[in-house]
Design a protein around this nucleic acid. Structure first.
Length: 299
RNA sequence: GGUGCCAUAGCUCAGUUGGUAGAGCAAAGGACUGAAAAUCCUUGUGUCCCUAGUUCGAUUCUUGGUGGCACCA
């Protein structure tokens, strides 16, 4: 009997958490979060992480496990979730995973190439160079060290360009030589459930949820992590806007409006990513019965 | 009531020495392999507030309105 990974995915605010609890109850399954920001234990409100009450109802994994300055990546997530699943499948025929971090989901489903982790020294050196000399010098280095990737990469996207050069410097080999583009085979079945709502409905929910977060104390949460605001973990919708308020640059109402807008922008980006995945079965979050039926049909 | 300033894309504004206009944000679409709620790319026709004039031609100058803001009463 091949175990199943039931993945509930969709844009932020669509209603994944609520539905995941019910689906997990039907399947007697724990829940793995595939959300790159719910991992941080200091951000429960702004990331709409499952509440203590919800976590009592269903055992959750990959929530609140990291400190803000901990290094983490999609590859770490892949590795951690795969070994977690191996354990869970000993006692559960199906496990639910839910969250909207597109790349993390893909890392679990397809795997990502084995690329070394960049040392902080190399990263810092390159970013200093980027600030002083601009991107063109780094692009020139990439062209020499990895002409193949130079042709392929989005040369306007400094993060991608710099990362490729980081790998070249660190390994002495071209970045492209690490990219095998292979789709790893998993020892479990994957059922991808996409949740969607029409735009107006989704926007309404996002706005309402942001107001609720503020009522729940998001501002205090942001204030609490404010000293660490330059960390990547805090380059996050809901926090970066409130930091501008705390810096005295924005009015509070304006910051809240921005959080709503940026959440909508994020939701759209998520949909762009998900749309191209033909394996996703799309449902409205209310269609719990249909989703369960699809699961049963697969067994 | 008087004087001055302003009225341009959904929003904030730039600009046209008179030849019907452009940035940022938003919006829409897209990319995405170890920082991904990140990062990046593409897409801008709008009675240039209304009216009358000057002019070959006015969104741009002039007259008179209307609305907003500021100051003076």
């Amino acid at each position: 009997m091949i175990p199943t990974l039931v993945i509930l995915l969709g844009p932020t605010g669509v209603g994944k958490t609520e539905l995941s609890l019910r689906i997990a109850e039907h399947l007697s399954s724990p829940i793995i979060s595939s959300d790159s920001r719910q991992l941080y234990k200091e951000l429960p409100i702004g990331t709409a992480a499952p509440t203590a009450e919800q976590q009592t109802r269903i055992k959750h994994y990959m929530v609140g496990t990291l400190g803000l300055s901990d290094y983490y990546s999609a590859s770490n997530f892949e590795e951690e979730v795969l070994s977690l699943l191996q354990e869970l499948y000993k006692t559960h025929p199906a496990v639910v995973m839910t969250g909207g971090s597109m790349m993390y989901i893909d890392a679990v489903c397809k795997g990502i190439d084995d690329i070394p982790t960049v040392t902080p020294e190399i990263r810092n050196t390159l970013y200093t160079q980027f600030e002083q000399e601009g991107l063109s010098a780094i692009l020139a280095e990439l062209k020499a060290a990895d002409p193949l990737h130079y042709e392929e990469v989005d040369r306007m996207n400094y993060k991608r360009v710099i990362h490729a050069v980081e790998i070249c410097r660190q390994t002495g080999k071209p970045y492209s030589s690490f990219r095998t583009n292979t789709h790893k085979v998993r020892p479990f079945r994957i059922l991808k459930i996409g949740l969607t709502r029409d735009r107006e409905e989704l926007c309404g929910r996002i706005n309402q949820r942001v107001d609720q977060m503020m009522a729940d104390g998001l501002l205090d949460e942001a204030r609490h992590v404010y000293p660490f605001r330059h960390l990547n973990a805090l380059n996050t919708v809901g926090y970066k806007e409130l930091f501008n308020y705390l810096d005295g640059k924005w009015e509070l109402d304006f910051a809240i409006e921005k959080i709503k807008r940026n959440s909508r922008v994020y939701a759209r980006k998520q949909m762009t990513w998900f749309k191209r995945d033909p394996d996703i079965h799309w449902f409205h979050p209310d269609e719990e019965e249909k989703i369960m039926q699809l699961y049963r049909d697969l067994q």
